[in-house]
Amino acid sequence: MSVVMAGTAAALFAIGTYLLLQRKLSRVIVGLGLLGHGANVLFVNSGRRGLPPIIGQGDPSDFADPLPQSLVLTAIVIGFGTTALLLALAYRSWLLTNDDEVEDDIEDRLVAGRGYSDLEVSDVALLVDEAEESDDIPRRRSTTGEPAVTGRER
């Protein structure tokens, strides 16, 4: 593996990890994409380097190892599919909340706080929102497109 390729894989992993740790969903998705590409670059480099592996064009012992390349193609396709699904999910999340922040798990907060324990989960979501609105953070703007719908009504 050449130093340049190793550096590329390392950089992709580093940037991907940084983005993954962000709170915004869109950045998480881009981060996952970069991480996947980092792994793909790593995989391509795991085989032998050499000439294009086409029979009849040179000595087979000089050929690059075609197996990792074909495997990486499969991995790229899988990554493409899952990223598309993730983007669709993020869009759905944005339609529902007008925001692409990753929220805490509500049930975890219930167990931690115990104060809300008699309320339905969606009620707590409202409570949390009210608390945040009182902190002057505008959360529920009206949308121009499809109206925002909260959890259970759907």
Partner: peptide
């Protein structure tokens, strides 16, 4: 179902 809680926890699961 595409409900809010499903999308939120599904997102964690997928990531």
């Amino acid at each position: 179902g595409g409900r809010l809680d499903q999308v939120r926890s599904g997102m964690t699961y997928v990531v």
